[in-house]
Design a protein around this nucleic acid. Sequence first.
DNA 1: TGTTAGCACTCTTTTGGTAAGAGTGCTAAC
DNA 2: GTTAGCACTCTTACCAAAAGAGTGCTAACA
Lengths: 347, 347
Amino acid sequence: MELSERKKKILQAIIDDYIVTAEPVGSSHILKSHNLGISSATVRNEMASLEEGGYLEKPHTSAGRVPSYLGYRVYVDELMNEYRLSVSEISQITNAFRQRYAELSKTIEGISNAISGLTNYTTLYTTPASCGTIIKSFKLIPIDEKSFVMIVVMDDGSVKNRTIRVKSEFDSGVLEKLSNYLNYRFSNINSSILTPETLEGEKQLVPIESGMLDSIFGFLADIANSDNSGDLLLTGTTNIFNHPEFSSIDRTREFLEFVKKDNIGKLKELISATGDSTSVIIGNENPVLKDKDISLVVSNYSLGGGVKGKLAIIGPTRMDYARVISTLDYLTGCINEAISKEGEQID
Amino acid sequence: MELSERKKKILQAIIDDYIVTAEPVGSSHILKSHNLGISSATVRNEMASLEEGGYLEKPHTSAGRVPSYLGYRVYVDELMNEYRLSVSEISQITNAFRQRYAELSKTIEGISNAISGLTNYTTLYTTPASCGTIIKSFKLIPIDEKSFVMIVVMDDGSVKNRTIRVKSEFDSGVLEKLSNYLNYRFSNINSSILTPETLEGEKQLVPIESGMLDSIFGFLADIANSDNSGDLLLTGTTNIFNHPEFSSIDRTREFLEFVKKDNIGKLKELISATGDSTSVIIGNENPVLKDKDISLVVSNYSLGGGVKGKLAIIGPTRMDYARVISTLDYLTGCINEAISKEGEQID
DNA sequence: TGTTAGCACTCTTTTGGTAAGAGTGCTAAC
DNA sequence: GTTAGCACTCTTACCAAAAGAGTGCTAACA
């Protein structure tokens, strides 16, 4: 069904209103807020037609219309007006970005937090995943007679460490030997090739007698394993209380439980699978969100030095898409601009 | 007001019932569930007296009685029966504890998670705070021409690191010199003495010319600063949906917002201030919880090697104190026992 | 032929009023 | 001191009526 210009205008008007009021929109209501130059009867006819086309829905006979998922899709793809960020919004984004913390993860959390506050929705972000990075070097540092710290520095500057405690005392000479061996054997290789099989075979060949080998190789295996699995974290979960669709305790519970534990894996997959440009997933469009009345807007962030991740907004399908998209895009722009300034210290 | 034995029995019966049903308890109701050998009229008289003494409250004239904070206090201190954990509960605790993860923080999170599941309340835990630990050694490892990783190993085996990027290229000789200098000057000292003043003075005296000094000393300052401030983390927040006092969206919102961000600092203080034995904070007893109808049960955990922290349950004042306390105490016992087994590998 | 005024009809929400239920507190008797 | 009995209070559940919002259809109109 090809939509006439008038139908598009009406659809847009309905969704614009619905996003603000969260109430089904009636024919006469539209005329008050939009100057369409037609009567309510005409609007009613068009609405009936739009409903037939699957763009609108009726909660019940005597209620106004509500957008369907298809309606939102058309709205997002071609109807909505671009949202222009206010000066205050722009300055908040800029501030969030300027305020770099000592730890990378804190920086991203800070940005995510700002986005939550700004949009009034919940923000999801992946921590930077070091998918198959290269091991740079090893250090084994004694703590006391029976324990030491094993430190692995990756090519991208990330550091992994574990305290290893063993049953009997060791002397530091062994640590030195082991350290040298690890550096000789495993440095400058991609961690992803450290499969359990490779490691098992390698362990047999170590020319150093020691009870620590199991722990050391266990850690190596974990590194290979944990790689490419950045976490998916949340900020602003309590923002959902601000939206009328979550005024029922059951809906809220469903949302909060959805966004925790069990489904976080599915959500992460969904978010990771999106492309390089900002993308919008509306309600039932994806089985993961089926019947949840939830939409996602996913964008990409990059903090330079190969640090990349996803930043997503999750909220009711009745989301202020224009504003959310503008906010995310502005943020992305900000970051890229800052990074391209060669020489700026990023950390 | 000194409570007679009969009053104590009645108070206990009321609270026992109320903890299960969450409904105001009436005089005849008590007689059904507890064999007190007196009539409902007598119970009513005693209840009126208990109310006068401040142990009970009435939601309205024709409702049953509900415990006051004072009532709960007496209940927790002298009335409640000890809860005996079921075999299934014991095995769940044991399992949670056995399943050690690679990272310390994951282990604690796992235990906290198990406790949330077991008790059906929200669990708070502090990550181990390394209050004024001693610096063991430094490593500076180059990443590329313009960046390196600075690693600081602490006496207790914890590792802190930061990637430092500088404006102009450096050669690895400088790093080596700096590394030696740091080890010579700062190893085996308590990080808490690294005040901004000390560091500023020290920076002037470094015999090595380098643009990296600011970043390096900045990191040192952060280490001294960030010390003794373990985070306060949560598991099982959505458990509150299982309790009838949170069936209203407003109460739930209040709880979830309380337990997030703004108040987390206050909560941390409150929890940290408790003593070495398991302690119970009931409703208004503490200004932080004022009018929130929330109670806390706080216990201490220790994972050996100086790793200590708090593990707390937060929930409605109508909490199953006996069960919560037993669960936490059993867990603590478990841990201590495991640790005292010399030679067991803990990590 | 597309547009519009008018109106009957439907469905939800609000309101108010009554009945049922639970529990107290008092009184008088034991 | 304890208890049976009963009047009284307050909440909750239920139902019916009224109000309100919006549609869909019909007939008239440009």
